[in-house]
């Protein structure tokens, strides 16, 4: 797919974090944090409250400058990059903020067109066509395009935010708690949407979540944040074999077991 690179490039790190240190005043959030994200995967960042999941996401996309460390995206150093180059990199990723962060004075369609106009200078009817296409890809009804964010439900806002994040057909999509605040059916549908889009558009997904169902059903790998660094990275199966008390409690607790049972039931149904 688009810019997904040759088969040899697949599985190569698209984001490479080394020795990241984040501190607010005296409080150190991350120290000597390393993480690799592979091209084309869906990776989830989990961790207890206050372990700095959102801070790490904001650090990668440049909303927060780390005190030390290096961030490589698409094989290029991000920190200290000249503004012009930086804009080019920004065109290659899309971000879904926790509450959608849609511009409230613009309709959904206009929200989607903002990056198209700003980065590509597009004009004319193609703008409406692309907006309609993204609205459909994000699973929104066609009439949602003319609505303002205040007229949308929470789930629709997330979908509209995703549509805006996808406007430039990014290679990486960052999702901050994509299913928080959605009902279980809506959350499952959103998970499926992300998995489907990954398969068709072929982007890499980096998501921060607390949703064990998301972890069990769509994530290729899980990175656990704790003790100021990434403690382990691996598949769900690998997580279940960990012995760290927090990880054991997280994945073997009642909610963790329920999510895994649900996944097993689903798979059995599909096979049977």
């Amino acid at each position: 797919m688009a810019d997904n690179g040759s088969p040899a490039e697949r599985g190569q790190p698209i984001i490479r974090l080394r020795g990241i240190r984040n501190a607010f005043g005296r409080q150190v959030v991350h120290d000597k944090l390393d993480l690799d994200v592979r091209r084309g995967e869906i990776i989830a960042l989990v961790g207890g409250s206050g372990t700095g999941k959102s801070v790490l996401l904001r650090t990668i996309v440049g909303l927060n400058r780390p005190a030390a460390g290096s961030i490589e995206v698409f094989g290029k150093q991000i920190l200290g990059m000249p503004a012009v180059e930086r804009r080019k990199v920004e065109q290659r990723w899309g971000i879904l903020f926790q509450n959608g962060a849609l511009f409230s004075s613009l309709t959904v369609a206009q929200n989607i067109q903002v990056p198209l106009k700003e980065h590509l200078g597009l004009k004319g009817p193609i703008l409406d066509e692309i907006a309609a296409l993204k609205i459909a890809l994000a699973g929104l009804p066609p009439e949602a395009g003319d609505k303002y964010p205040s007229e949308l439900s929470g789930g629709m806002k997330k979908r509209a935010g995703l549509a805006r994040a996808l406007a430039l057909d990014p290679e990486i999509v960052f999702l901050d708690e994509p299913t928080a605040g959605l009902d279980p059916i809506g959350a499952a549908a959103f998970d499926q949407l992300i998995a489907d889009l990954r398969d068709s558009i072929g982007f890499t997904v980096f998501l921060v979540t607390h949703d064990l169902d998301t972890l069990a059903t769509v994530c290729d790998r899980i990175a656990v944040l704790g003790e100021k660094r990434v403690m382990v990275v691996g598949t769900m199966e690998e997580m279940l074999q960990q012995t760290h008390p927090w990880i054991v409690e997280y994945f073997h607790g009642p909610r963790g077991r329920a999510a895994l049972d649900a996944k097993a039931r689903n798979e059995a149904r599909l096979e049977g």
Binding site: M1, N4, D128, A132, L133, A136, L137, P142, E143, G145, D146, D196, L197, D199, S200, I201, G202
Partner: peptide, 20 residues
């Protein structure tokens, strides 16, 4: 294969735009 999935998605997304 990749193109086929993509074309399928886009074809699914093609739907009449409601008239204003």
């Amino acid at each position: 294969e990749d193109y086929e999935v993509l074309l399928g998605q886009v074809a699914k997304a093609d739907r009449p735009v409601p008239e204003k």
